[in-house]
Write a protein that binds this DNA or RNA. Structure first.
Lengths: 194, 194
DNA sequence: ATGAAAACCGAGCGATGTATGGTTTTGCCA
DNA sequence: TGGCAAAACCATACATCGCTCGGTTTTCAT
């Protein structure tokens, strides 16, 4: 039983190159009509060569979103939300990466609706984490007296996540649709004193 | 220039049979992994035979959703909303038709993210209509004194639509997730007096 | 009854995602 | 530093997909 040898330096770099290149192609061509052949060409590989790094097309997309999450978590601290401004900044940032928003919307919807989808469990965990972070933020604001004690914390957290998701659909249909302003409006509903 | 002859009785019935059968198959197999051949088999037709009624697979799905909309509009009067109860009843009803919810979520997301999608314009109009109906409902409640005058009507309407959409994703990931209760919770945020 | 249009089919086209069996390249260690 | 196992990568093939095309069968108004 030999110890498995890890990836080579070249492979690690190529894998990263694929992820960033794939995002570019998707942003340009859209998610649905992007084939593995196109993605492979974009990084100078054959189809089989690309599939060496990712078991399937779906897995590649999931990996892009996972990487996005990591970057966003670090940049905006959604998972350890200090204030609503982090979310507002993230939503504002999303306006600049429509391809990513589109990919996320598509994949999350597909994965949610199909328990057999490879990313189904991933999104269950993801939504649990985000909802928990938002709930804690609201609880903190509640303790500070900036949010009424009568607010249902968990429900409001779920609604905040739902609104963020749902607004993306309306924004994709009309790029002039101001997601940030609407999220701010939601937060006003939460914070105004009864 | 001869006058075009309409569909035969058999054709009209078959078309309807296809729509209902397709929904069944989708509810069972999921939207993504349902092929035209499967749908054709379900109604005793060949692929080409089915495609005689619908120019493409996408058009068939769009027709299912359009029919659903017609039924829902008539049953719950979403387009001429009298009170929030209509929406609550509709959302409650959706719990019983997961296949439709899944189909709607998928198709609306795909169409929204792709301006070239055949249903793109359809959803732009649909969201405009629903947002307008909700806005009018809120305005009416505002006039009746049940909603504060400080509420941003249009933004709240957009948020209500967004929340309804977004909650579906969380419900698909966890069927025990109570969409109705969360919508009610949102409405509480809107109606509580400052 | 008849004939034009609707209903329907068989065959096939191009593109897709992916599995297979192989060759070339990398880099650890003897 | 040379060997060699594993990683990197490719050519080919396959099943399936949505969809088109040319044709046959069925419907039904005249």
């Amino acid at each position: 039983m030999a110890a498995p040898r890890g990836s080579y330096a070249k492979g690690i770099a190529k894998r990263e190159e694929i992820l960033t290149a794939a995002l570019d192609v998707i942003a340009r061509n859209g998610y649905r009509r992007t084939s593995v052949r196109e993605l492979a060409d974009a990084v100078g590989l054959s189809q089989a060569g690309l599939l060496h790094y990712f078991a399937s097309k779906e897995e590649l997309f999931q990996e892009i979103l996972r990487k996005r999450d990591d970057v966003d978590m670090a940049s905006y601290g959604i998972d350890t939300e200090q204030s609503i401004d982090g979310l507002l900044a993230l939503v504002a940032h999303n306006t600049d990466v429509p391809g990513l928003v589109q990919l996320y919307a598509q994949v999350s919807t597909e994965a949610a609706g199909d328990p057999a989808h490879p990313a189904h469990e991933f999104f269950i965990a993801r939504y649990g984490t985000i909802r928990g972070a938002f709930a804690e933020l609201i609880r903190r604001e509640q303790a500070a007296g900036r949010v009424g004690a009568d607010i249902d914390v968990d429900s409001t957290a779920a609604l905040l996540v739902a609104a963020t998701d749902g607004l993306q659909t309306q924004w994709m249909l009309d790029p002039s649709f101001d997601m940030v302003e609407h999220i701010r409006s939601f937060w006003n509903l939460v914070t105004r004193k009864p």
